[in-house]
């Protein structure tokens, strides 16, 4: 890989939202460590400052653990990568501070990584895809992107809230609680399996984009009315929202004519959405790939690996330019390794 020895290592730090992750990737693509510590609020959603405080507390322990698991010493590292955006300000700043401290103390180069790109790149690494149509769905993002002439292009996306956010808010309204190691979306998926009756909820597709805020409002209103069983509403919300996502993905697939579809991000763990997507991919004679569960939710390994790709292609981020970018869009990122 352009004169960099395969014994070189990159440590990556992820801290865009409620997960603090530290990953270590060898330059040849081996993932040696992937430590994730999730902030679990007692009630409600993620408060950015509380999550950031959690990240600051667990940072030191997580970095040590990652180095132990990778069985390397800090002196073996060649580069430090961190997720520079998009995400929640206080959380991003905490991760960036840790990364800057490590880089200056160890006298190593720093690479700021785009979080959305990292989800796609780790998916490609783990599934062996090279030029997929990527559906990236998580708590903060819902987008369909593919590479075309120097950049990733976003063909479809949510016009308002992300799918994971929509499911999480509804799950909390329905009385489900987040536990360590069991994301809210997984709890909702379990309950939805018991649902049978499809409730009437709005279906909003606009071109290759979709809108989920109206659907969430309507589902919550139905919940308060109490005319449907909670399981039926969980089932209906999933069916309607997933049908919308699958329809826009199929539109993007027909439009781009890509031959691989990669499903990545936290919601990629959902079996129902996986099965829906598989049917359309088959109809368009493409191949379907799902990111492995360990790399589906936010993690440091994806940042470390994308850091390797960037660094070995000559991209570094000087400390004075390492400020976090809360609204950093995927289309703005250079990806020289794709050409």
């Amino acid at each position: 890989m352009k004169g960099h020895a395969s014994e070189s290592y990159c440590l990556g730090i992820e801290s865009t939202a409620d997960d603090f992750g530290v990953g270590i990737a060898k330059f040849n693509g081996e993932i040696l460590a992937n430590v994730v510590d999730t902030f679990v609020p007692e009630t409600g959603g993620i408060h950015p400052r509380e999550a950031a405080r959690h990240h600051a507390i667990v940072a030191d322990k997580s970095v040590r653990q990652a180095l132990e698991r990778a069985k390397i010493s800090p002196n073996n590292l060649s580069v430090i990568a961190f997720s520079q955006g998009p995400g929640l300000g206080p959380c991003l700043r905490t991760g960036a501070t840790v990364a800057r401290a490590l880089a200056s103390y160890l006298n190593l180069p720093l690479v700021g990584v785009n979080h959305c790109l990292a989800h796609i790149e780790i998916g490609k690494l783990e599934t062996g895809t090279t030029d997929p149509l990527a559906l990236y769905v998580s708590g903060g993002n819902t987008m369909i992107a593919a590479y075309d002439s120097e950049r990733y292009r976003v063909f479809g996306e949510t016009l308002d809230i992300a799918l994971g956010n929509c499911l999480d808010v509804f799950a909390r309204e329905a009385g489900l609680r987040q536990k360590k190691c069991v994301p809210l979306g997984a709890a909702l998926e379990q309950l939805a399996l018991k649902g049978k009756k499809l409730a009437q909820l709005p279906y909003t597709v606009k071109g290759m984009d979709l809108s989920l805020s109206g659907l969430l409002t309507a589902a919550c209103a139905q919940l308060k009315k109490g005319e449907h069983a909670v399981a039926d509403l969980c089932y209906s919300l999933q069916e309607i929202a997933f049908s919308m996502v699958t329809e826009v993905t199929e539109r993007a697939l027909a439009h781009t004519e890509k031959k691989e579809v990669l499903f990545t991000g936290g919601v990629a763990a959902n079996k129902r959405l996986q099965s829906m997507l598989a049917t359309i991919v088959e109809e368009h004679d493409a191949r379907f790939f799902v990111v492995p569960k360990a790399f589906a939710t936010d993690n440091g390994a994806m940042i470390a690996w994308t850091g390797v790709l960037a660094f070995t292609n000559g991209i570094v981020t000087p400390i004075e330019e390492s400020y976090v970018k809360l609204r950093w869009r995927l289309e703005e990122v250079d990806v020289p390794w794709m050409t």
């Binding site: 499809l198 279906y203 069916e239 309607i240 997933f242 049908s243 699958t246 829906m276 049917t279 359309i280």
Partner: peptide, 8 residues
């Protein structure tokens, strides 16, 4: 569409 609930 096979993926959609038949009513929808």
């Amino acid at each position: 569409k096979r993926y959609r609930h038949p009513d929808l």
